[in-house]
Lab assay of single mutants.
Amino acid sequence: HNLTITQGKLFFHYNPKLCLSEIHKMEEVSGTKGRQERNDIALKTNGDQASCENELLKFSYIRTSFDKILLRWEPYWPPDFRDLLGFMLFYKEAPYQNVTEFDGQDACGSNSWTVVDIDPPLRSNDPKSQNHPGWLMRGLKPWTQYAIFVKTLVTFSDERRTYGAKSDIIYVQTDATNPSVPLDPISVSNSSSQIILKWKPPSDPNGNITHYLVFWERQAEDSELFELDYCLKGLKLPSRTWSPPFESEDSQKHNQSEYEDSAGECCSCPKTDSQILKELEESSFRKTFEDYLHNVVFVPRKTSSGTGAEDPRPSRKRRSLGDVGNVTVAVPTVAAFPNTSSTSVPTSPEEHRPFEKVVNKESLVISGLRHFTGYRIELQACNQDTPEERCSVAAYVSARTMPEAKADDIVGPVTHEIFENNVVHLMWQEPKEPNGLIVLYEVSYRRYGDEELHLCVSRKHFALERGCRLRGLSPGNYSVRIRATSLAGNGSWTEPTYFYVTDYLDVPSNIA
């Protein structure tokens, strides 16, 4: 807008934040220059609390790290170098490059900038070799853009010569660093050979998330399962459950009422301010606690030095998902009996873990797994792929695949051998790939016309006998059925096997 004052003059007093240069501009645009008398524009009460600059400061050096910015700028000295009290560095987070010096300023003089007072450097006698002032900004957020400017702080001049310097606002972004852990990993099994893994992005990506790394490792069953005799009275049979499938998407929606109208769909109840505040506090606490764990609990591995020492970490090797089922080394339970199943799973520490690289999504279907087997899954978020990966501390989750139908069934015939004193040795093959492992066998036998009897055969007993022995049988026709019990439950009964026990007292003698 054009402003013209045809008559009258300007009068400025007691404006401590208004620089004289701005008042002189007002004289020019209003056409009143030359009308004012000496005392109409006070030299001592206008701009006496402001830094009124008329020179431009330029930054000469900028260096960044993930949490620091090192700045240096060209030296500046007023005509009387004693008038320079120091520099004021202003900075704040700036997602967009549209910041002005006066953003967030209120009537009390406060604003949204963080201000650092910096002492002037030592003055050199040689004007050509003056030290460049600077400042190291610490405690910054990774991968965050900051708006920065600097200006001088000078003393009051009796001659009211307006001098000083100020830089333009520059924008500097800190470097990326390792992201925080992925949030809320959930693993479920939808079949006997697959596990579905879902997660949420890290709360602090500290860069642009480029991919996720998912490692999985087959877990050995508890050692007590191999040692305890679950045929003993009072000892509860062990059981394991597989990871249940995901709930429906509708039930997972946030901010939804727990109660549904019987007449149909209901609208979600909005969260109160107290609920939102509580969630923010919980989120802040979780982030602080995660940072504490990362800094205190997890110790970084030592990389190899120039002395030739090897990095103890196993090298990563990509495998196809079809090879995942046989990740671990199978060892027989008892070496003397080769027909026992290889369900003991000690994992070799030198073995390469299978892994998958996930790009542009937060889910993965891990296939080719062994049925009813526990897996430990390790999830890392990465925001750099080359020249070397920059990934987060791992988040861990466990899951067990679903049982395989008929995996616990005894394959092959049940054979028998009759000894003296009416002892019958029953023999059968253990299931080759049971659900988890076989903890015991149930032997059901009966003599024709009598009630059915049951015998429990422990895992250890089966390994020693290759089956079991029935003792003290009365003469007669017998039928026997056997079924295995694994961590997933009972298998199917075998087809009945028949044998006849004679009275050993009636056996004919070869003595003449």
Rank of each mutant, 00 (worst) to 15 (best):
K233W: 08
D273G: 05
V507L: 02
E281A: 09
S344R: 12
N360A: 14
P312K: 03
K357M: 13
S274P: 02
E351V: 11
E227H: 13
F462T: 06
S344P: 11
P270R: 05
M402G: 01
P245K: 07
S223R: 13
E247D: 05
V297D: 02
S367D: 08
W216I: 09
Y500S: 09
L473A: 04
D323H: 11
L369S: 04
Q219D: 06
L440Y: 12
S251V: 15
R319Y: 05
L225V: 04
R466L: 10
T401V: 09
A335H: 10
S444C: 03
A336R: 15
V397T: 02
D385E: 09
A405V: 13
R318H: 06
T502V: 06
E227A: 10
D273L: 10
P475D: 05
R286P: 01
N255K: 06
R400L: 05
A335D: 08
E495A: 14
G436Y: 02
L293P: 01
V324D: 06
V297Q: 09
R466N: 00
V327P: 09
S509L: 14
S248A: 12
K432H: 08
R376K: 13
R316E: 08
A263E: 06
L453S: 06
I438K: 01
M402W: 05
D222K: 14
V334T: 15
Y292Q: 01
T347Q: 15
L225Y: 08
S268I: 15
I377G: 13
G322E: 07
A407G: 04
D311N: 11
D250L: 12
Y396I: 02
L487C: 14
S251D: 13
Q219Y: 13
E356Y: 05
D506I: 10
T328C: 13
Q219H: 11
N421C: 11
I366V: 12
C269E: 03
G472H: 11
R218N: 06
K236Y: 08
R471H: 11
N295G: 09
S262W: 14
S257A: 06
K236A: 10
S444T: 15
Y500W: 14
L237F: 11
F337K: 05
K236V: 05
E247W: 13
Y498M: 14
A336G: 02
I209M: 13
Y230Q: 12
G322K: 15
R319T: 13
Q256W: 07
M402P: 09
F337G: 13
V331P: 13
N208C: 09
S367Q: 10
V424R: 03
Y292C: 00
K278T: 04
Y375T: 06
P403G: 01
